[in-house]
């Protein structure tokens, strides 16, 4: 089977008058049709930028992109004009973090979904509206017929995110990009949305790239996980590999700093230090300054990718020392 998405050595830089930010520094990622990959990382690790790069949504005047990206056989870097517009929405679509902001406040939900349908399919007004209604039903919005004429501000956060999913899936994309779709929702609604996404993903057979900073959420929805740090993927593997046997010190630190399983009354083990300034790419491992296993070579030379298991890889020179410390 050919992969649905193949990203090779993606690099993204943002230029401003004062400085250049190296947001993504060589990301390789591939995704099979019908597979869900969770991109995990803290703010500024480049995960959202990677998603936007896949849709070519980054402001062109200020962005430099290099590398190769192919989705469903199309070279994303080479797309332009009407080919790009056709690609967006019908091949790849996106769910945004804040559903309140992702809908235009002056149009009804139904109008916005129907508009997207009419853009890609030669549907008339009635057919597009019927599709919008069908999609609202699909995402389990109660009394969908009435919500069709509701404005975004008339709906609750969870409803809006459901409607956002309906909008994103209205043209049956092959790949869905989800940019922290549950971050702005409260915990009970989060689970419902995640279950819904997972269900629709199976039903439609889409590939999904799911960006989040919440490990719990990532594990819930993903087949495979990739952990990003400073614009690179530092470890990847199945959800199980990463939770049970994270090899790289950064994901290990992330896991240690979650509340799950921590002893009451004990301080959480936070990772010391702060993420690096992306104004310049470090020569060595970007995590080295915060890593207690790091030595001089970690700082000066970029570590190679080490294969741990089938499909489980980490970018670290000191995996033995890390593993040893866990046993001792």
């Amino acid at each position: 089977m050919t992969p649905l998405v193949r990203i090779e050595d993606l690099r993204v830089r943002f230029r401003t008058a004062e400085r250049t930010v190296h947001a993504v520094n060589g990301v390789d990622l591939s995704l099979m049709p019908g597979e869900v990959v969770g991109l995990l990382g803290e703010s500024g690790s480049g995960k959202s930028v990677t998603l936007k790069a896949l849709l070519r949504l980054l402001p062109e005047a200020r962005t430099t992109m290099s590398g190769r990206m192919a989705v469903a056989g199309q070279d994303v870097m080479a797309l332009g004009g009407s080919a790009l517009r056709a690609y967006r929405g019908s091949v790849v679509s996106m769910i945004f973090q804040e559903p309140m902001l992702a809908f235009d406040p002056v149009f009804t939900i139904g109008e916005q979904i129907a508009e997207a349908v009419r853009r890609h399919e030669n549907a008339d007004r009635t057919a597009a509206r019927a599709r919008a209604l069908e999609m609202l039903d699909r995402v389990r919005i109660p009394s969908a017929k009435r919500r069709l004429d509701a404005y975004p501000h008339e709906m609750s956060g969870g409803m809006r995110q459901r409607a956002m999913i309906a909008l994103a899936l209205a043209c049956r994309p092959k790949l869905l990009l989800a940019d922290e779709p549950t971050t702005a929702l409260d915990a009970t609604v989060q689970i419902q949305i995640l279950l819904l996404l997972r269900e629709l993903q199976k039903e439609f057979g889409m590939g999904v790239i799911f960006v989040t900073h919440d490990i719990g959420v990532a594990v819930e929805v993903s087949d495979r996980l990739a952990v990003m740090y400073a614009g690179r993927i530092v470890e990847r593997g199945s959800a199980r590999d990463l939770i049970r046997a994270a090899a790289h010190p950064y994901p290990r630190g992330l896991l240690a700093s979650t509340v799950h399983g921590a002893m009451r009354g004990r301080r959480l083990d936070a990772i010391p230090g702060a993420p690096p300034d992306l104004a310049k790419v470090p020569d060595g491992c970007a995590f080295a300054p915060r890593c207690r296993f790091a030595d001089a070579e970690c700082v000066s030379r970029r570590p190679d990718i080490v294969r741990i298991d089938a499909g489980h890889e980490a970018e670290c020179r000191r995996l033995d020392a890390v593993a040893a410390s866990a046993e001792g």
């Binding site: 849709l55 949504l57 009407s82 517009r85 056709a86 690609y87 967006r88 929405g89 019908s90 679509s93 996106m94 945004f96 973090q97 804040e98 902001l101 992702a102 809908f103 235009d104 406040p105 508009e115 997207a116 853009r119 890609h120 956002m164 909008l167 994103a168 043209c171």
Partner: peptide
């Protein structure tokens, strides 16, 4: 965001 969302769904 909704302008980005519109672009993401293919609006010119």
């Amino acid at each position: 965001d909704f302008v980005d969302a519109a672009r993401a769904s293919g609006a010119g």
